Computed example of a mutant assay.
Amino acid sequence: MQRIHIVGGGLAGLTAAVTAAESRAPVTVHEAHHTLGGRARTSDGPYLTNEGPHALYRGGPHWTWLEQRKLLGPFASVPPLEGTRFFFRRDGALRRTPPLPMLRLARRSPRQAPVDADFLSWATGQVGEEGARAAAHYMAVALFHHDPGSLSAAFVQERLRRATALPPEARYPVGGWAQLVDRMAARAWNLGVRIETTARVGPEDLARLRRSGPVIVATHLDSARTLLEDPALTWDSGRTALVDLALRTRRGDPFIVSDLDSPGWIERFTAQDPTLAPPGEQLIQAQIPLAPGTPRADAVRRAEDLLDLGFPGWRDRTTWRREALASGRTGAVDRPGTTWRDRPAVDRGDGILLAGDQVAAPGLLSEVAFNSGIEAAVLAVRQLGGTARETPRRTGTP
């Protein structure tokens, strides 16, 4: 019997599994790890840190997809601005507000921004260099890239507009992303999806699976390149140092510290979801993008400098610390002259399909994984001769 095989049990793989199974196609998910979720896993223990995404944006199509299936569960909103402390580092000092030109730029429609120009050049022509550089550095929150100003103006402006929307679009799964992953996995299981963990698939296994039906490779693009033995599967991504900290609570700790002097961002996740750390402690993450070849220690020093400004006495209050480097694992970025349509195609031919956050699908952050998972499932069901229940919604820059 023909069957759809999905390699990878992260957000893209689970989205593809649910979409295909809703069309009554037989589906098997092969996950190399002992748990599902990919980069949407939440760590065990008293500090519930996420390995990858942190926020769902309510304006995205995947929010509707999850809501229709009652998979959203409890979500926390961005705390009210009047009840939190949001700071910006400008000229080496903490300030309450960003430059006014940056705010004016954030209100510009993405349709005004050209695909072929770099963001910094275009934005400088719109509001001047100060506002343009501040906006580029601010976008570390959604791009994880060391030089957002060098990317396509259309690509960055769309994300700037959404990241600064009022009221904020960002929503946080209460208890971490593992809660959402568990709900998606339960939905897949109830639809009859066969889920196999600790099931690593190699090139020889792929050939065997392909004989029984379409295969959706829903892994990191580097892993897909190795599995499919296809050197063309490449696309630009970011390289970011992550510093996770648990601090004893101190009254007045900020919610956000955004570095406008260079790309960098610190967020206190327990401000919106206190369940992520034990009582009396706060969970914080600093993310500092790094240029290729720059040692992680440089980013850690920058993170500590930013912590010194925003969280006085943080060293004496630290109860737990973890550092990591996310290299090429923070989603696709589009350089001038390219859009999401230029990324590796979902349909690779011969019954092989791709899904993930660096392939040819629109969206912001994890939306790319959701959209590509839906599209891959639709195509796989059609290859089996069926009719998919739902086609992906197209959003994003043209």
Score class of each variant (00 low, 15 high):
211 R>Q: 15
211 R>I: 08
211 R>S: 14
212 S>W: 07
213 G>A: 10
214 P>V: 13
215 V>A: 06
216 I>S: 07
217 V>T: 08
217 V>L: 07
217 V>Y: 07
219 T>E: 05
219 T>Q: 08
220 H>I: 00
220 H>C: 01
221 L>E: 01
221 L>F: 04
222 D>W: 06
222 D>E: 14
223 S>Y: 04
223 S>F: 01
224 A>P: 01
225 R>I: 00
226 T>A: 11
227 L>Y: 02
227 L>R: 06
228 L>K: 06
229 E>I: 02
229 E>Q: 14
231 P>S: 05
231 P>M: 05
231 P>W: 04
231 P>R: 01
232 A>K: 12
233 L>V: 12
233 L>A: 10
234 T>K: 09
236 D>Y: 09
237 S>P: 02
238 G>P: 00
239 R>G: 01
240 T>Q: 13
242 L>A: 13
242 L>V: 12
242 L>C: 12
243 V>R: 12
243 V>I: 11
244 D>G: 14
244 D>E: 15
245 L>P: 08
245 L>I: 08
245 L>N: 01
245 L>S: 10
246 A>H: 00
248 R>I: 00
248 R>T: 07
249 T>F: 06
250 R>I: 07
250 R>V: 15
250 R>E: 15
251 R>M: 06
251 R>C: 01
251 R>A: 14
253 D>V: 03
253 D>W: 00
254 P>Q: 11
254 P>E: 06
254 P>Y: 10
255 F>Y: 15
255 F>L: 14
256 I>W: 15
257 V>I: 13
257 V>T: 06
258 S>D: 11
260 L>I: 09
260 L>Q: 09
261 D>V: 13
261 D>C: 11
262 S>D: 08
262 S>M: 05
262 S>T: 09
262 S>K: 12
263 P>I: 03
265 W>T: 05
265 W>H: 14
265 W>F: 15
265 W>S: 03
265 W>A: 03
265 W>L: 13
266 I>C: 11
266 I>E: 11
266 I>D: 11
266 I>K: 06
266 I>L: 15
266 I>Y: 11
267 E>A: 10
267 E>V: 15
267 E>S: 13
268 R>I: 02
268 R>M: 03
268 R>K: 13
268 R>N: 08
268 R>P: 02
269 F>E: 05
269 F>Y: 15
270 T>F: 00
271 A>S: 14
271 A>K: 04
272 Q>H: 14
272 Q>A: 15
273 D>S: 07
274 P>M: 05
274 P>C: 12
275 T>R: 13
275 T>K: 05
276 L>Y: 06
276 L>K: 07
276 L>W: 04
278 P>T: 07
279 P>I: 00
280 G>Q: 03
281 E>Y: 11
281 E>N: 09
282 Q>A: 08
282 Q>I: 01
282 Q>V: 07
282 Q>N: 11
283 L>R: 04
284 I>W: 07
284 I>H: 05
285 Q>K: 03
286 A>K: 04
286 A>L: 14
287 Q>D: 12
289 P>Q: 12
290 L>G: 00
291 A>W: 03
291 A>Y: 05
291 A>F: 01
292 P>I: 00
292 P>A: 02
292 P>D: 08
293 G>K: 03
294 T>L: 08
295 P>H: 10
295 P>I: 12
295 P>M: 02
297 A>F: 06
297 A>H: 09
297 A>N: 08
298 D>Y: 02
299 A>F: 08
299 A>T: 10
299 A>D: 07
299 A>L: 09
299 A>Y: 05
300 V>N: 04
300 V>I: 15
